[in-house]
Design a protein around this nucleic acid. Structure first.
Lengths: 197, 197
DNA sequence: CGCAAAAGAACTGTGCACAATACGTCGTTC
DNA sequence: GAACGACGTATTGTGCACAGTTCTTTTGCG
């Protein structure tokens, strides 16, 4: 799916000069792919790329959770519980897009708790790519399951049980990964346009 | 240290339009920091940021090495041995910059062997930032030690000893991290200009 | 003499126009 | 009828000029 600069200019009512650096950024983060002299295309990850992303998430986020368990404060846990409640509300009201967004943000918040800005950046990128992957391959189940697993994770973190938190995160990510239809059932690209604009 | 767009235009003999997207990319990778309306500055990592980078490298590259050990081919080992020989040559001839560059590239090659493009991208970024850190805080010992440790790592990978390879990489990264003078002894910025241009 | 405010310089941000490249279409030839 | 080549169109790449902002210097005042 092509992203013409002119189309983006009209969509966001800005000029090309402000679109271009944004496309460069998105390209750098792997959200769009940039072909020289041909323009920007929404990244359409293959099943293998999807696996790679979730494998990377496993490596990084297990480390994040391990770190977070050692330094999370009661206040942070309280805020994260509120966040999970928001997720539940979004799911209850059937707002799929918002549910995916909040679910991703939960993982970013967790990285912030861990306290390493490098991981925050990486998790941000991986979450963005995951959202794309879920939008393409995901079932509507995935988000709902995630919400409950987020709560369980907070329980483990609250009791400073790092090992259990790591185990839960591992299952969580594996769970999301497995719930994807990576058997080649492509979704029409029109869906993506509504998701982006 | 400020990077004026005009100065870069003169240095590389191109116009601002070609410099700007590059600065955006470097900013996205954390090599330079971009302040809105104020321009680009070479990232001057603090000791804490340096620790964060090497902690991230530990997480990611241990995973990389574990994966690489299971799938490295004899041919890849041969090529990597040649690479290590190049490193040794650069060190022997006293070419410090080239030695740092090759040493970093070794880690990127290893990520390529592991076969996950996501990790390749992340390692590329972390290596770039590490080079900056080493240039600022590093002693001239670090590069020389690294070269031998790279060879040992290849021995472990060659015998498919994943556990030992992971252990060696762990020591290697910890070694580099420890060899940095992160006690606040700042190096004059002029050094950096010669390193970049 | 020190400080604050205003004018000036320098630099980045943005829009516009043109050039270069890639893609689709049509015509020609085998 | 099919394949190859040339042309026209659409889109990206790039240079240039101006607008907006920040930093520096200078000047006026306490």
């Amino acid at each position: 799916m092509k992203l013409t600069e002119n189309a983006l200019c009209h969509a966001f009512a800005v000029s090309r000069a402000r679109i271009r650096p944004i496309l460069v950024k998105l390209g750098e983060r792997g959200i769009v792919t940039l072909h020289p002299n041909r323009g920007a295309f929404v990244a359409s990850p293959t099943a293998e790329e999807a696996r790679d992303v979730f494998e990377a998430r496993r490596t990084i986020e297990l480390s994040v959770v391990r770190q977070a368990a050692t330094r999370i404060t009661k206040n942070q846990i309280k805020n994260l519980r509120l966040h999970v409640a928001e997720e539940a509300a979004a799911i209850a009201s059937g707002d799929r897009r918002e549910a995916i967004r909040l679910s991703g943000q939960f993982h970013i918040r967790l990285a912030e708790v861990a306290g390493n800005p490098v991981f925050v950046r990486f998790v941000e990128e991986l979450v963005a790519r995951s959202s794309l992957i879920i939008a393409l391959f995901g079932s509507r189940l995935s988000a709902a399951c995630a919400e409950r697993e987020h709560g369980d994770l907070l329980d483990a973190l609250g009791s400073r049980d790092g090992a259990r938190a790591v185990r839960l995160m591992d299952h969580h990510l594996e769970h999301i990964g497995r719930s994807l239809h990576t058997d080649g059932s492509d979704v029409p690209a029109a869906d993506l346009r509504t998701l982006l604009v």
